[in-house]
Amino acid sequence: MPEATGTLRLVRDRGVLRVGVNDQLPGFGFIRPDGTFGGFDIDFGHALAAAIFGDATRIEFVAVSTSARFSALSAGEIDVLIRNTTWTLSRDASLNLTFGVPTFYDGQGIMVRAADGIESIEDLDGAVVCALTGTTTQMNQDDRFAGTGVRYQALVFDRNETLQEAFIAERCDAWTSDKSQLAARRAAFPQRVGGPESLVILPETLSKEPLAPVVRDDDPAWADLVNWVILGMIAADELGVTSENLDAMVEAPPSQEVARLLGVPVQGTVFDARTGVSVEHMRDVIRQVGNYGEVYERHVTPLGIPREGTLNALWLDGGLMYAPPFR
């Protein structure tokens, strides 16, 4: 193992990576009945542990609330925050924290009952819109709402569960949240009250929600490592390296870029970017966790959000997932 400093050294000495996560976000961070964490965000934590220790299980998840997440990171209770956190200017600038590469591009959407015949935001005039605490301000500031002159009445809840009850009881005409969450709720909407087909998610996206990992901004080397593990997973997706074909790729890399990504010697020399971890770290990441596409398929596709045509597709397919070159 190469010498390490700062956060990386702290993590190595401790022997376990501490990641702040959500424990109540379907598909992204939740606790399974057996007590283990699962989800899209969780897998990026595992990937980081695999890169650092060669073992994705040397990780401790700390369930942090929306309000405590940044303080927990600043205080050093966690090494990295991967908890559906939107990258915004004010957070980045004022908190002594730094945001990494977005792992997921989300956006606020609106879900309505199919029977109501609402097709776009313009039809929502006079409607009761239910939202979780903290998301309405975004709605108020949103140009789309202000510009159309649509008046609505907001009804605010602190938990999705209670919001869903209110929606079923028809106390709300529309339900607003991040689109990924609306899709998850829709896919699991109880059959006794109509099932998924009774709901429609409007095509409009009200806000940009790039969800990114967060680290303290006093350790750029650590931020680089976090970023390049994620970028490595995106690059592996682009280059077609999966957990299935990894051994074959290591045996005979189809291109120099694949060889550099996986730490396979090219003409006798191994590419070493000196990120502080083993040159073969991406092999552990891909073997134990998978590439970006595999993680997406595992957690987000089952929520009912196909990847094609969204911002989360590879740049080659018209999305925003793009890794700078590995050289």
């Binding site: 976000l25 379907p26 896919a187 699991a188 909407f189 929520l303």
Partner: peptide
């Protein structure tokens, strides 16, 4: 907290 987490498992919404 565990109880709250269980209701966010897709199998047990609601």
């Amino acid at each position: 907290q565990a109880a709250r987490a269980t209701t966010e498992q897709p199998d047990f919404f609601g």
